[in-house]
Amino acid sequence: MFSGLSFTVAQGEGLLLEGPNGTGKTSLLRILAGFGAIEQGALELKGADEELTIGQRAHYLGHQNALKLALSVEENLTFWANFMGQSVSSSTIADHLGAFNLESLSSYSAGLLSAGQKRRLALSRLELVSRPIWLLDEPSVGLDTASCALLADAMSRHMAAGGLLIASTHTDLGLTFKNKVNLGDLGGRAT
């Protein structure tokens, strides 16, 4: 799909993946998360517990939101926090829902949410469970302007706290990324 790709992301830095549709942004993020293998080359995560893979230290937000429509907003978030090994109180949940303006919807079933609200619910998972790497695939899809600003805030908070961020997005979130990779220039063909 692409070749000759090389990048380094240091603590507190972000990497923006660019390129036209079909050049491999999603594939690269999925490889980083541990889905799919690379033909040649290597990925290395320095300074971390060697027992853990990049995927186990990362949040991956793909095109799908991993929400259960039959569960309420709060139940969805509580489950993922528990599953990722964190016990949470309902006030913590409310705080993190508040970060994406969802606190008034916490008892609603997720099936009643709009596409943008579902995306915001998926995004509120990122800060609830602390993981040093965020792999975000088009995180702003479906979000309105106000929510895009909330997302940009969350992303800059994460980087300010020393986290790594690798994201692909076509929307200008007003963030400055220290590193950029354009997959379109690396033989990623838009077919």
């Binding site: 541990g34 889905f35 991956y60 799908q64 599953f83």
Partner: peptide, 8 residues
């Protein structure tokens, strides 16, 4: 996908 990533 998220379940595959762990930690369980």
């Amino acid at each position: 996908e998220l379940m595959t990533m762990g930690p369980m």
